[in-house]
């Protein structure tokens, strides 16, 4: 009998292939969906206008361009919608079908979301590269170490985002409708992740709070790796924080899942 992890790994190529097929099933919807995460471009337009004459809060116009384009790339590569998917499947009882398959549903959800990343990257990266070359390329980091750490940092950011979203969606086991939780989550994320504005522009207490919340590790940390020069200690702090939050988010997701499954009502005939 095949063990659960090896079965899941063997199924991975097919899960990814079907995930890709699902992602591109509707071309127009796919493009609109990609464009839903372009809020950083709006913020970039706003803040570059503010800093046109002179730097604002230490940020020049070029720095704002670099920051928001980096944010756009990170957001495109790490955003996921698993909370909505999970809530919908719990509410309508269609989660039952996933539960009948011998691969852990968390793994199947993950594969579906990972499959979409190359498509989001294919749209986001060229846009970011062109804009950076035109207006802010010099503000990117020149550190080889930071470039090398970018990939694990993005992977941690994705894992934290997926874990928290999965846990938020899993609350539907207890609350049925978690839309309000998700809206609250997005509000907190926008403010404390650096998605709306760089965290060092937040008022003192909020900046301190942001340091303790998971959201900055989902966006601001990879953005800082791309746009700032950081020393070894700071790098260790940031990556260590990401690792810790990735473990917590995964544990939270699995904990909510385990507790929730006992309450699953598999509604509908």
């Amino acid at each position: 009998m095949t063990s659960a992890p090896s079965r899941a790994l063997r199924a991975l190529p097919t899960l990814l292939r079907v995930g890709v097929a699902e992602t591109v099933a509707y071309r127009a919807e796919f493009l609109v969906w990609i464009l839903t995460s372009t809020q950083p471009l709006i913020m970039m337009g706003l803040w570059t206008a503010v800093a046109r004459e002179r730097p604002f809060e230490g940020y020049s116009s070029a720095m704002f361009v670099a920051y928001y384009l980096a944010s756009l790339v990170v957001r495109q590569l790490t955003a996921n919608w698993v909370a909505w998917q999970l809530m919908d499947e719990i509410r309508r009882g269609t989660l039952s079908m996933r539960l009948l398959r011998p691969v852990h549903p968390v793994f199947a959800y993950m594969a579906g979301h990972v499959a979409a990343i190359p498509f989001r990257a294919a749209v986001a990266l060229p846009v970011a590269v062109v804009l950076l070359i035109c207006s802010g390329g010099s503000t990117l980091t020149g550190s080889g170490l930071q470039v090398a750490l970018l990939l694990p940092s993005l992977a941690f950011a994705w894992l934290i985002s997926f874990g928290l979203m999965f846990a938020a969606g899993g609350l539907a086991f207890f609350m049925t409708d978690t839309s309000a939780v998700m809206n609250l989550y997005y509000g907190l994320f926008a403010l404390f992740s650096g998605y709306l504005l760089p965290l060092d522009m937040l008022p003192g207490p909020l900046e301190t709070l942001a340091a303790w919340l998971p959201f900055r590790f989902m966006l601001s940390v990879p953005v800082e790796l791309m746009t700032r020069t950081l020393d070894g200690v700071r790098l260790a702090e940031l990556l260590g924080g990401q690792l810790a939050w990735a473990v917590i988010a995964t544990g939270l997701a699995l904990g909510v899942w385990r507790a929730g499954l006992r309450r699953f009502e598999a509604v509908g005939t």
Partner: peptide, 21 residues
């Protein structure tokens, strides 16, 4: 009254998915 078929794809894709899982 419940479907396990991947709604937007041909059934052959669901079959492949089940084969793998």
């Amino acid at each position: 009254q419940k479907s396990q078929l991947v709604w937007d794809l041909p059934p052959s894709e669901t079959f492949a998915l089940n084969r793998a899982m």
